[in-house]
Nucleic acid binder design. Structure first.
Lengths: 201, 201
DNA sequence: GGCTCCGGATGACATCTGTCATCGTCCATC
DNA sequence: GATGGACGATGACAGATGTCATCCGGAGCC
């Protein structure tokens, strides 16, 4: 019997996944949580075999949770289940010590199977996404270029970014310019979209 | 017995929802589809009592599907189940003739209840979201201002937008400028974010 | 008929962005 | 000790963006 802990902020989806997994008689959902910061206490409390983590969660995002769980409760196998097949997520999940990575597009019966394999300590990764991640390559952006791009989200002006990162406006423009060049785009909005898709942020 | 048709592009979520709804013995999922353009044929084929529609779907988006179903199969009650509690979605769903609107954040047992009420022909709307929609107010954007903003998504330049909408570049700049003014923002990226949040797109 | 509002356009202007060359300081590395 | 890269900055410049005044035609309304 594999004991599971389920973490997903969407109540409906969480309940539905629990119902789906409960159909398998070698799996048991021992607890459910809806916020990232509630995961670690619940893990320590219930000591599940496998932790199913959504990436998008309030409180603390799933990838951060994966990292802390890997440190605080290394016996627990972590599996990421996410809506968005973003290459960057997979990369960061692996770095955070997750064993499994499944997108919500996957067929329903694949989930139980993936859970069992992760329970045995195997690595389970969506093959299509793995390919995409490798194709994306390692980010050519320097740390600051990345920071400036992230700060540019939501339409911040150069002055805004400069203030937030304690840089001169000229420097901000320089970093934006080189980020734009490295993504082969024409402006920061395009650069942001491109970098995000390739998992460079 | 209420007969259901389930449309959601995320395979895992779809299967899980089906499992959840199957727990109720007055509900029966008669079919599932994963693409917007497959919904209408399936509806005509199975004649369900209630249609559960996700908004984000490939092929044809859920709101467009709702509108066509309301026209082609008016006997079928449409219920939108979506990830994003965006005010604009609710507004458009209602205009498209949907009876129910539930976000995936809702508690799991609320879904079955909502389905039953929609099955009886009642309107079921997430109360928090309804309030937000009313608070957002009616969009002050004119049709073209809206078009231009939407076309500006993903970092398109003025020239790009002008070409796509067959307008002069000056006209595009004018519309962008007035959209920026109406959203009380400083540039198109901010205006886009703001208008999107208020459901004005 | 006059009024207003939307769509579409032009021209002028100020400001914001993006590019480039150049400089200096660290720090790692060979 | 030299080389190279990341970080930070400045100045100059071209081009993109946002603002404003102004114009026209059509639709709707009092």
């Amino acid at each position: 019997m594999i004991r599971l802990l389920l973490a997903d902020d969407q109540h409906l989806v969480r309940g539905a996944l629990a119902a789906l997994l409960a159909l398998e008689d070698d799996l048991e959902v021992v607890a459910e949580v809806g916020r990232g910061d509630e995961v670690l206490p619940a893990v320590l409390d219930h000591q599940p075999d496998v932790l199913l983590l959504d990436v998008e969660m309030p409180g603390l995002d799933g990838l951060a949770v994966a990292a802390t769980v890997a440190k605080e409760a290394p016996r627990v196998r972590v599996m990421i289940v996410t809506t968005f097949g973003r290459a960057g997520y997979l990369r960061r999940a692996m770095e955070a010590g997750a064993l499994g990575f499944v997108v919500k597009d996957a067929p329903a019966d694949a989930l139980a199977d993936a859970v069992r394999r992760v329970g045995r300590g195997e690595r389970v990764v969506d093959p299509a996404l793995a390919a995409q991640t490798l194709a994306g390559g390692v980010s050519p952006l320097t740390g600051r270029e990345r920071d400036v791009l992230v700060a540019a989200r939501g339409g911040a002006t150069v002055a805004d970014i400069a203030q937030r990162l304690f840089l001169s406006e000229g420097t901000v423009r320089n970093y934006l310019s080189s980020a734009i060049a490295k993504t082969s785009t024409r402006n920061r909005a395009e650069a942001l979209r491109e970098a995000e898709e390739r998992g460079w942020l």
